[in-house]
Simulated scan of single mutants.
Amino acid sequence: MKTEVKQEVNDKNGFFYITIDNQPEAKMTFVFAGLDKIIIDHTEVNEGHNGKGFGQMMVEQAVAFARKKNIKIIPLCPFVKKVFDKTPVYGDVL
């Protein structure tokens, strides 16, 4: 069983998602807010995969993306907000 975090991005929005054996099992969506910010607005994990850390994996990928692109994250999604509140090391991208 191969688990991967992937990303799709265009000029206006994008999403991070997790596949298991090439099947999408979790997704976290965002929209660009200007040139230097993204708003993460929704996270979902398919039934049967709750509690496996998929949401956390996607947040880590979003933080890495923000750091690489030198942009900030606005965590509108309640789950992502909670992760940011519990993880002070992500403060540089807020």
Rank of each mutant, 00 (worst) to 15 (best):
Q23W: 04
G14Y: 00
M1L: 06
N22G: 06
Y90L: 11
V80C: 08
D41R: 10
F79G: 11
V31A: 09
F32P: 07
E47P: 11
G53A: 01
G55L: 05
A66W: 06
N50Q: 12
T29W: 05
V63C: 08
Y17N: 03
P75D: 14
E4W: 12
F79V: 13
I38Y: 00
V80W: 02
K82D: 14
D85N: 14
F15T: 00
T43E: 01
G34W: 01
E25N: 13
C77R: 01
V31C: 08
C77K: 01
F16H: 04
K69A: 10
Q61E: 15
N22A: 13
T87N: 15
N46K: 07
K6E: 05
V63D: 12
T87R: 13
L76P: 01
K52H: 14
D92G: 14
D36Y: 05
D41E: 15
T43V: 02
N13T: 11
G55W: 02
V63G: 06
V31H: 04
Q23G: 09
M58N: 12
K69Y: 09
Y17W: 12
T19M: 09
V83D: 09
M58I: 13
T43Q: 01
V31M: 08
Q56P: 02
F16W: 07
V31K: 10
K12Y: 05
R67S: 10
D36I: 00
K68R: 06
D92T: 13
K27L: 12
H49S: 11
G34S: 13
K37Y: 03
I73A: 09
K82V: 11
K72S: 14
I39V: 15
K52S: 13
E4T: 15
I71S: 11
I73H: 05
G53R: 03
V63S: 07
T43L: 01
